[in-house]
Structures are given as C-alpha cells and as structure tokens.
Nucleic acid binder design. Structure first.
Lengths: 307, 307
DNA sequence: TTGAAAGCGCTAACAC
DNA sequence: GTGTTAGCGCTTTCAA
C-alpha cells in the first residue's frame, strides 16, 4: 500500500483533483455541495490520505516550519549544554500545539550555517545566544520578510526582534539582601558579548568579582577566594554546581531556565519561570500574522515572576 | 533581490538547467568539462544560489529530515521536562553536523499526532519515551522502509529498533555498597510501562520501596519514611531535588542525562555519559544506509561509562 | 558533453 | 459546482 495522493482520491470519488483540494482545505470561496464533500472526505479517510507538505510548501513558497537555531558553546559543562533546554522544550511544545513543525539546528559560532532558513523556506526563525557576527550574516542575506527573533542576544539590527530577560529587574529585587557592593556574581558563559557586558554592568557588581562560568576548577578557585561573601548566581545549573563549593545559604540564584527545584532549598531563589518561551511564542505568532506588528523598538524584556 | 533558481543560473551561464543540476550535485555519471563547471559554479555563487529543498524532497521522495518525536509528560516538575534534554541536544548536534535537518515534535501521549512522518517524508524517526499504543499506531501505518528507533521504551514490534540503557548493568555495579535488600529506589516517571516494570524488576528493590517520581510533596513523604536507608536515584535531576530531603552521602545516583555535575558531590555517582545520543546516531546512520543492517534482535543496550 | 522534457504532489486562476 | 491546467523548483531519463 503506497501513499495516496490527491489524484487517487479524485479518481476514487469521481471528481477532479481541484475539487478534492478544495474540500480538504475548506477553500474559502468555493461552494461545494455536501454530497460531494462527504464523498471526498470518505475516500480520503478510506485511503489514509496524508498530504505531502513538501509539495504544498513548494507551491505556497512557505513551509509551516519554524526554526530554532542555537549557538552552542563548543565546550563547557552540562550547565552550558542545559542552559537553553527548557526554553527550547517549552517553545517547541507551544509551536507544535499550534500546528507548526519545528526544526532545531545547532549553529557553530565559528561557522554558522544559516542556509537552512532559505533551503527549507522557514516561516519564522528564532536565533538563540548568537554572536553579533552571526546575526549580521543572517540579515545580510534577508531582505525578505521572514520574522526573525533574537533570543538572549543584544543586537543592533532592525531585522531582528530581540527577546531578553530583564536582568536589571532581577538584580534590583535582590539588592536589599545581596547588595552588589559586598557580593560576587557568577555569570553564565553566553556567546553574545553585548549581552554579557550588559548583564555584568546592570548587576552593579565590580568587575573583579564577576566570574564567568567556564569550568569547575576555575569556579572552585573563585569561590574559595570569596568564601566570606554572599553571591549571586545566574542560572540554576551553574548554581547546582556552585553549591558544591559554596554555602547555599549565602547564595541567591536567578533561575533563568525555569527549574528552581534543581537548586538547594537553602539558597534564595528568584525566577523567570517559563515566560521566555511564552513571550517568544506570542511574539512569533503576532509577526507571522503581520511581519511588522511587533513592539516598535523591537525589544521584549521578560520580567521575573512575582509571587 | 529574490531567490535565484536553477533556471536563473542556467540562463546566466548559458547552459540548461540539467547541466546546472549536474554540476551542483556532482552528478556521478556525467562528464562535465571544467570550463562549463566553473562557469556554472561562478554564477551560482554570484547569484547567492540556495537550493530549494522542498522541491528536491518532492522529486526525491525523501527529505533529508530526521524526526525526534518525544512523548512528554503532561505534568511533572522540571526533572521530567529536563529528562531528555541532553539526549536531544546531543543527538541533534550529531545529526546537524552530518548534514541532516532535525525536526522536533512533542507527542501528546493521549493523542499522538504522527502524521508528520509521512507529511514531511522524514528519512528516519526517533520515538522517545512512548507508550506501547503510540508505537503500534506508528507501525500500523508504515509498511514503508523508514528507519524507526524507539528510545527509552520496550516494545514488541519488529518495525522498531530499540535503544535503552542497560539498567541491569548499572544496578549490578552498585549492588556491593547499595544492596537492593536494604535500599530504596527513586525511579523516573517514564511513559513506557514496560520499561518502568523492567527497571523496577532489575533493580531488585522490593516493590514497596520503589518510589516513582511524581511531585515534590510525595517524594518528601517517601524520603522521610526511609531516612535511615541508603537509596538509589535514577536521573540526576530527580537526585538534585531528592538531596533537599535526604542526605546525599546515603545516595547513589545513576546519571541518565549526562550531567553528573548537577548532583551534590557527596553522593555516589554512576554515569551513562552521552552514550545514548551517540548510539542513537550511529544506529540511525547505519539504518539510513541499509534499512536492515541493525542488530538482528533489534535491541541496543547502552552501558555505563567505566572509569 | 549537453539539453528537452516528463514528472514529483499540490494550489489556484480561469474556463465551462 | 466542477474540471482543466499552468506552474512551484528540482532530478533524471533519453535523445541529440
């Protein structure tokens, strides 16, 4: 039994392919009598018809595919491999639920192969944690109207909408008990230099007490030298590791991945929940409907969850 | 500037589309003089040619897409949302590196929409953590030769190759210090009932001391009642949570996600590393080359990393 | 060594 | 109401 096509259904139902297509797609301005309609529908079901989306994509010049392109660190512990996982999961779920198909693709920071966007005629693209250069590489190739959303990256390029956490807000909430003057900061090793700079700056923590997560040994060394201080940790996975070398009670963790349960209960926790995925989804839907309906300054900032 | 097609290149280079196609694909049994070849290549580059893979997929009846279909729990804490993340990440990376495009799709256990396989003409499919019924639903629709790999699921269906951890091996390594007679077991809340049963059974832990991870409250209650015992925990994320309610030093964690750093160093750790993703990738590649070149019993068991 | 042409399965304009 | 048909961009057979 091989795949049935429109033609097969047409033959079986004694109508033309056009009619079948009309019925199956509920074509707006076609008026099909119920008798014909149900005959077609019956045959389609009987033949186990499944549309070939490659054919449809070819003629429609759009695919129903949304891309999530992630710039992954070449090396790095599990904290960096996990960093985007809950976001990707959440976003994928929402998109799938909505009927989109999701293609996931790792970008090599050195050599980001972005052809997938045009090759597959992606309807919309999320670019996660990319360097400035990657963004420019994309925008130099797209005069087209594909919605482009930069996630976790500050980029001065009008082709991209930008979606970021409002770290400033998070730090502010912490400032009473974890004042930047006396605390240190453990930051995630993000690819986007502009974002990293902005985080460090808005934390208010002096540069010499900002540690960028790289490997366990260096983290250990840094924490040993700051055992008497309180600390702020960005990311629950980094925090889980840090708790092996620091007293959780002296730590405030800004949960960027929506997994607060992972960090020891003794630490102070402040969370963004799963809002980034939701915001990403909503913005994309809106742009898909109308490519320029996003916020006029192109920035979306996700705030922490208030409890 | 709109997308260039083969036809555009052909016109620009003064040859036919067939010739362009031959050149661009290094067609095996065509002999193209270097002069023509480079003229075509030059024009392709000049026009920023990017192939339309939807068109190619249509004629080739295959897409270059590999599907990862994941049965996600409707509810559950971050430990369950994270469970497959490192596997998916690792697998996606390997596939992407190899030139495949990866489509990711959540399956609703109640209503698994599997049409994506035929709609997109997927070249190969991983089905992760699915119930018996979902597997049957798939195999009832596929006489076709698409390589199907069931990950984290025991299923008696010849259409699927099965890829699972060798839990027995892991438990055996632990038996000296964490004897099943005196320990409890915290198991992940897997969808596949057959797998769950097999894990519980091969652990040797008496049924009344096997706790299936559901929510933090129930976990807390269970651990309170077993404070005097040693315990084995499946999954590092579950373990991280458990450490809030149990002494890490009395815990052995079987790391199923490749993220041992996440669990407190005081616990005994035994790991599968990232071998599942690698094994999945290798098996898929082999099947893609020759659909029946997998192990004859269709089972692949991934062992723990020896150190 | 190259090209013309027949599709792959589908959509939609247009004719009847 | 329904059918005919011209593509969408590509691969590949067959002829020249």
């Amino acid at each position: 039994m091989k795949k049935a096509t429109l033609k097969d259904i047409a033959k079986a139902a004694g109508v033309s392919v056009a009619t079948v297509s009309y019925v199956l797609n509920d074509a707006p301005n076609q008026t099909i009598p119920d008798e014909t309609r149900s005959r077609v529908l019956d045959e389609a079901k009987r033949l186990n018809y499944v549309p070939n989306l490659n054919a449809r994509s070819l003629v429609m010049q759009k695919s129903g595919l949304i891309g999530i392109l992630i710039n992954r660190p070449a090396s790095g512990g599990s904290w960096s491999r996990l960093r985007h996982a809950p976001f990707v999961d959440g976003l994928e779920r929402l998109l799938t639920e909505r009927g989109y198909h999701v293609v996931l693709s790792s970008l090599d920071a050195a050599n980001p192969k972005l052809d997938i966007i045009s090759e597959r005629k992606l309807d919309g693209v999320f670019v996660v944690d990319a360097k400035k250069e990657s963004f420019h590489l994309i925008s130099s190739r797209f005069s087209e109207g594909v919605p482009l959303i930069a996630v976790d990256g500050l980029i001065d390029d009008p082709l991209f909408y930008k979606l970021n956490y409002d770290y400033e807000d998070a730090f502010a909430k912490l400032s009473a008990s974890f004042g930047p003057e006396q605390s240190y900061l453990i930051a995630e090793n993000v690819n986007n230099a502009e974002l990293a700079a902005s985080i460090a700056q808005s934390s208010g923590v002096p540069a010499e007490r900002v540690h960028v997560m790289e490997n366990e040994a260096r983290l250990h060394a840094f924490l040993s030298g700051n055992a008497d201080r309180t600390g702020i940790v960005l990311g629950e996975f980094a925090a889980a590791v840090a708790c092996n070398y620091a007293d959780p009670a002296k730590l405030a963790v800004i949960c960027t991945a929506g997994c607060p349960e992972i960090v020891p209960a003794a630490a102070v926790r402040i969370a963004f929940g799963s809002r980034k995925a939701e915001a990403a989804f909503e913005l994309m839907l809106r742009l898909l409907r109308d490519p320029r309906s996003g916020p006029s300054d192109q920035y979306v900032r996700v705030k922490t969850v208030n409890d």
